[in-house]
Nucleic acid binder design. Structure first.
Lengths: 345, 345
DNA sequence: AATTTTTACGCAAACGTTTGAGTTAGCTTG
DNA sequence: CAAGCTAACTCAAACGTTTGCGTAAAAATT
C-alpha cells in the first residue's frame, strides 16, 4: 500500500509551504503564483507524487470507477464488449469493476449491491435472462445512480441504451436462409422476457410473414438459461428434429446458443447444412474455420462497449440531470459462409 | 453516490450515542455492552447501513481490491483465467480491477502504475511478451506489494507462481505427432523472452531428441507479438512452407497463435492434416467443431486463476512477511482430434 | 500618504471511519 | 470507607485530500 508513500503533507514540509498551498498548486488554482506552482509540480514530479485516490474519493464523493454486469466474461461477445468499455473508461481515467451474473437474477441483484457498496459512479449492465423484475435497478436510478443499458435492455427504465439492430439482423439472416432455398426454418432463442429475444424473434417472424410463410410455433424454442444449460438446449434440438415437417434450417439467437448448437449437432451426427442449415448470432473469430464455416450475424461488440461507456461517462460528468435519453442502435453484419450453403442449384 | 447515505454519524445521532460507540458496536468490540450492540446492529440493519468503503480504505490503508494484468481479455484462455480470479476474489470480499497490456511493455508499465495508483492490495500478472525487463515489478515487490505471477512468469522475481506443465504439454503433443507418423514437425511460438515459450520449446526439443530426431532451427519460428500481429505470423508460416523438407506438422504454442494459424492455413488453402497437421495450445470450447476438429493442449484456466488469487489473498492476509514461495504447476491435458490424424494406416 | 484592491498564501473544517486514550459511574476490596 | 477496579462509554486525533474563508504584504488607486 504505502509505496512511494509521499503525500501532499510531505511536499508541504519539504518546501516550507502549507498543505493547502500544495494542494492548490497541484490543482493549478488561480490563487497560487506561477513560481510556487512550478516549484511544487516539479518537486511532485521528481518524487513521483500520486494523490491518494481513496482520500480524493472520500472528499469528492466519487470513486472514478464504473461497474459492469454481464452474464459471463467467458463469452466472445461480452469479452469484446468489455474490451471496448475498458478502453474508453481507461482513457478517461476511470476503472471498471466487472461482475458476472451467470444469467441468474439473484446473482445480478447481489452483484449490483456489491458494486453500489464499492461506490461506483455509474453502472453498465446487460440484464440476466432470468431477470424479469428490474425494480432494484429503477430504485437505484431514482436515487441518482447513472445507468446505461447495453445488449439486454429494459423497457421499463428510461435511460441511455445501446443495442444492435436485432430485428434487422434476424430478418436479414432469415431472408438469407429463405433465398438459399430453406423452407422450414426453426428458431432457438433464450428467455421470453429478454428484449433481445423479442426483437430477434420479431425479425424472424417478419421475414417469414413477408415471404408468405406461416409461422409454426413448434419451430420456436426458448432456452431460459441462454444456452448455458446444455441439457435444455439439447432437448430443444431433439424436439425440433422430431417435428414434422422436420426443419431444414435453424436460426440461433445468441453467441452461446449458436456455438453450443453447433457442438450438439456435431455430437448427434446431424450434418450442416445438408441435414439442417445453421445461421446464428455470434462474434466468434473462428467462424471461418468452423466445420462447416459458420454463417453468422456479427455484432460490433467493441463499439457497443465503447459507446455505452462514453454515454455513461457523459451522464456522470454532466452538470445538470439528464432527462433526454438516447437509444443507440448499431447495425449488425451478416457474414455468409457454408453453414447456410444454397440448396438450389 | 450518496445512495442510502446513512452514515455511522446518523446512527449515533438517532440513538443518542457517540460515533465511536457505534463504530465499536458494529465491529463487535468488547468495550460495548451487549444491549447497545444489539440496539446499534438492529438499527443499522433496518436502515441498510453500509460502511463507506473509501473511508475505511483511507483509514485502514487497504482497498480490498486486487489488480489483474493480462495481455487481452478477448482471449478464451485469459477470460477463463479471469473468471476463476473473479470467482475467488469475490468470495473473499475483494474486487478485481482488470487491465490489458496487449503484449506491450509500455502499456504493462502504465497499467501497473495505474493499478498502484488505485491502491490495489495485490497484483496478479501474466507479463507481456514484449517485456524483457521486470525491474518495475521487482521494485514494487520490494516496497511490499504482494504479487503472484501466473502463466507468463518471471524467474527474476521470487514470489508465488502458478503455471502449467508447459514442458510436459509440449512434449506430449510432440510425441503424439511423432507417434502419428509425422516426421518434420515445426514449432511456432511467441517471444524468446517468455518463460512459457522456453518451456514449451524445451518440451518440443526433448521429444524430438528423445526420438532420435535432429532439431532443425529453421522449423522454429518466433512471433514477438504472440500472434496478435497477423502479418508476422503469416510470414512465419510462409517461410515454413518453403523450408526443405517442408514440415508435415506444426505445434503452436499459444491460444492466439493456434487459432490464427488455423485461419491462415485455411486462407492459403493448405489442408489440415493432409498437407500439414496442427496441434496447438488452446482453450477454445470450439475445438470439437473446427474444420478439422483441433487437437489441442488444454490448460485448466479457471483453476489457474482461482489458485493464483487464493495465493495472493493468503499473502495479503498474512501477518508475517512471506519468504517461502510456492511454485504451483498444474497439469495440461491433450485432446486428440482430427487435425493430427494419423498418417499411418 | 491614505485608501482600496490584488496577490499569494495559511488556517481549519470536512469527507466517514477507526482506535488509543481518557472519563465517568458503580462496584469491589482490604 | 478510602482506594482501586471494571464496565461502558466518549473524546479526539488520524488517514490524505479539498476548499471556503481569513489575512498579510504588495501593488494600484485616489
Amino acid at each position: 500500500m504505502n509505496f512511494d508513500a509521499i503525500t501532499i503533507r510531505d511536499i508541504a514540509r519539504e518546501l516550507h509551504l502549507s498543505v493547502s498551498t500544495v494542494s492548490k498548486a497541484l490543482r493549478d488554482s488561480y490563487e497560487i503564483s506561477e513560481k510556487t506552482k512550478k516549484l511544487v509540480t516539479e518537486f511532485a514530479q521528481k518524487h513521483n507524487y500520486r494523490p491518494n485516490p481513496m482520500a480524493q474519493s472520500l472528499k469528492k464523493g466519487h470513486s472514478k470507477s464504473i461497474g459492469i454486469v454481464v452474464s459471463s466474461i467467458d463469452n466472445q461477445f461480452f469479452s469484446q464488449v468489455i474490451n471496448g468499455m475498458e478502453s474508453e473508461a481507461y482513457s478517461q481515467g476511470y476503472n471498471v469493476i466487472i461482475t458476472q451474473s451467470h444469467e441468474s437474477y439473484e446473482l445480478e441483484v447481489q452483484n449490483v449491491g456489491h458494486l453500489i457498496h464499492r461506490a461506483i459512479d455509474g453502472l453498465l449492465i446487460s440484464i440476466a435472462t432470468e431477470t424479469a423484475d428490474v425494480e432494484h435497478l429503477r430504485r437505484l436510478q431514482q436515487q441518482g445512480l447513472p445507468i446505461v443499458f447495453f445488449d439486454r435492455v429494459s423497457n421499463e427504465i428510461d435511460t441511455h441504451k445501446v443495442i444492435v439492430d436485432n430485428l434487422g439482423g434476424a430478418y436479414q439472416a432469415t431472408m438469407h436462409l429463405l433465398a438459399s432455398g430453406y423452407k422450414n426454418i426453426a428458431h432457438i432463442t433464450s428467455s421470453v422476457t429478454s428484449s433481445v429475444t423479442n426483437q430477434r424473434l420479431a425479425g424472424y417472424v417478419d421475414a417469414l410473414v413477408e415471404s408468405g410463410i406461416e409461422v409454426n410455433e413448434q419451430y420456436i424454442k426458448y432456452c431460459l438459461h441462454g444456452g448455458l444449460n446444455l441439457d435444455e438446449l439439447e432437448q430443444a434440438i431433439d424436439e425440433l428434429m422430431q417435428t414434422e415437417p422436420r426443419p431444414d434450417a435453424i436460426l440461433t439467437a445468441s453467441d452461446r446458443i449458436t456455438t453450443s448448437t453447433m457442438t450438439l449437432l456435431h455430437k448427434k451426427n446431424i450434418r450442416i447444412p445438408q441435414d439442417v442449415a445453421l445461421v446464428g448470432f455470434s462474434n466468434t473469430v473462428l467462424a471461418d474455420v468452423l466445420n462447416p464455416s459458420l454463417t453468422s450475424v456479427h455484432q460490433p461488440a467493441f463499439e457497443i462497449g465503447r459507446k455505452a461507456t462514453e454515454m455513461l461517462l457523459s451522464i456522470i460528468n454532466s452538470k445538470r440531470p439528464i432527462t433526454e435519453f438516447e437509444n443507440v442502435v448499431l447495425p449488425t453484419e451478416l457474414f455468409i459462409r457454408s453453414s447456410s450453403a444454397s440448396k438450389l442449384k
